[in-house]
C-alpha cells in the first residue's frame, strides 16, 4: 500500500513539473520549427514574464485571501503572458530578423547576447534576491488514497492542460495554425501562397513567449522567481524539446512530461542524490542523441540537395 501511494505521489509531482517543462519546451520547438534556430533567450523571456506576473499580482491582490485573489492570480498571469509576448516579438524584430540571411551562427550568438542583457537588466532593476508569489488561495494539501495533492498542483495541471489543448487545436485546425505549419515546412512556398511569413513568425514568437511566461508564473507559485531562473529552466526545457523531437509540437509536450517524471522518479526511486537532479536531463539528452538523434517523435530530415 505504502509503495503504491508513494508511486502515485511521485507521479503527481512528476506530472506537475513535467507540464511546466512542456510549456517552455513548446516555445523552443515552435521557433525552431519555423526558423531552424534555437532561441536561447527563451528562458529569460520566461523570467521577465514571471516578474511581471508577480508584480501585477502583488499590486492588485489586496489583503484578504478570497475569490478576488484567485481572479487576481489569473489577471496577473495574463499580464505576464501579454508582456512576454510583446517582448518576444520585439526581440525577434530587433535581434533576429536582421540576421535571417546571415550565417546560422549569427542569430544564435545574438540570442545568447539577448539572454544576458535580459537577466542582467532584471538583476539590476529588481535585485538578485529571489521572490516568491503569495498564495492566491489556501494550499493545504488534501489526501486521496494516501496521495497528498496540493491545490497548487491541481491549478498547475489544469492550466497546463488548457494551454496544451488550445495550442494543439489552434495549430491543427485554425487558419493561422495551418499557415504556421506551411511556413515551417517551406517558407518560400508559403509566401507564394500569399502568406505573410514575417507575420507568422511574429505570431510564433508571441505564442511561445506567452507560454513561457505562463510556465514562469506557475514556477513562481511553486518555487521562486530570480533573475537567472531562466538559465537552468530554459536549458532543461530545451533538452525536453530535443528529446521529444525538436520542431515537433507533440514531441515537446511528451519530452517535457517525460523529463519531469524522470527527474522526480530518478531522485525518489533510482536513488539519484537530490543534488544531482539537474544532471538527469542532460544524461537523458546524451542517451537520446546517441540512440535516436531526431528525438522520440522527430522525423529524420534528409539534407536538401
Amino acid at each position: 500500500m505504502g509503495s503504491i501511494s508513494e508511486f502515485f505521489q511521485h507521479l503527481m509531482n512528476g506530472l506537475t513539473l513535467g507540464g511546466i517543462y512542456a510549456l517552455i519546451a513548446l516555445g523552443y520547438t515552435m521557433v525552431y520549427g519555423i526558423l531552424k534556430f534555437i532561441n536561447f533567450a527563451h528562458g529569460d523571456i520566461l523570467m521577465v514574464g514571471s516578474y511581471i506576473g508577480l508584480f501585477t499580482f502583488n499590486a492588485i491582490r489586496g489583503q484578504q485571501m478570497g475569490i478576488w485573489t484567485i481572479v487576481a492570480f489569473f489577471i496577473a498571469m495574463i499580464a505576464g503572458m501579454l508582456f512576454s509576448a510583446v517582448l518576444g516579438v520585439l526581440i525577434e524584430r530587433i535581434a533576429y530578423k536582421p540576421l535571417r540571411r546571415a550565417t546560422r551562427l549569427a542569430p544564435l550568438l545574438s540570442a545568447i547576447g539577448v539572454s544576458f542583457i535580459l537577466s542582467n537588466t532584471a538583476a539590476w532593476a529588481w535585485g538578485t534576491k529571489s521572490r516568491k508569489l503569495d498564495y492566491p488561495f489556501d494550499n493545504t494539501p488534501f489526501t486521496i488514497g494516501g496521495v497528498a495533492i496540493t491545490p497548487h498542483q491541481i491549478l498547475i495541471l489544469v492550466v497546463v492542460i488548457i494551454m496544451m489543448v488550445s495550442l494543439k487545436l489552434f495549430v491543427d485546425r485554425s487558419r493561422i495554425g495551418k499557415a504556421m505549419r506551411a511556413t515551417s515546412l517551406d517558407q518560400d512556398t508559403a509566401k507564394l501562397m500569399g502568406i505573410k511569413a514575417d507575420q507568422i513568425i511574429a505570431i510564433t514568437f508571441a505564442i511561445g513567449s506567452a507560454l513561457a511566461a505562463t510556465a514562469g508564473f506557475l514556477i513562481a507559485l511553486e518555487i521562486k522567481v530570480y533573475p537567472s531562473m531562466g538559465m537552468m529552466t530554459g536549458l532543461k526545457a530545451f533538452v525536453a524539446a530535443v528529446v521529444g523531437g525538436i520542431g515537433n509540437i507533440s514531441g515537446a509536450m511528451l519530452g517535457g512530461i517525460l523529463l519531469g517524471l524522470l527527474e522526480t522518479f530518478g531522485v525518489a526511486l533510482l536513488g539519484i542524490p537530490y543534488g544531482m537532479r539537474d544532471t538527469i536531463a542532460f544524461v537523458a539528452l546524451i542517451i537520446i542523441l546517441l540512440i535516436k538523434p531526431e528525438g522520440l517523435l522527430g522525423k529524420v530530415e534528409k539534407e536538401k540537395v
Partner: peptide, 18 residues
C-alpha cells in the same frame, strides 16, 4: 514543392489562406 507533411486537402487550403 508541396507541403509534404500536410494532407492533400490542407495543401489546397493553404492556397486559399489569404
Amino acid at each position: 514543392r508541396l507541403f509534404k507533411e500536410l494532407s492533400v486537402l490542407e495543401n489546397v487550403m493553404v492556397g486559399l489562406h489569404f
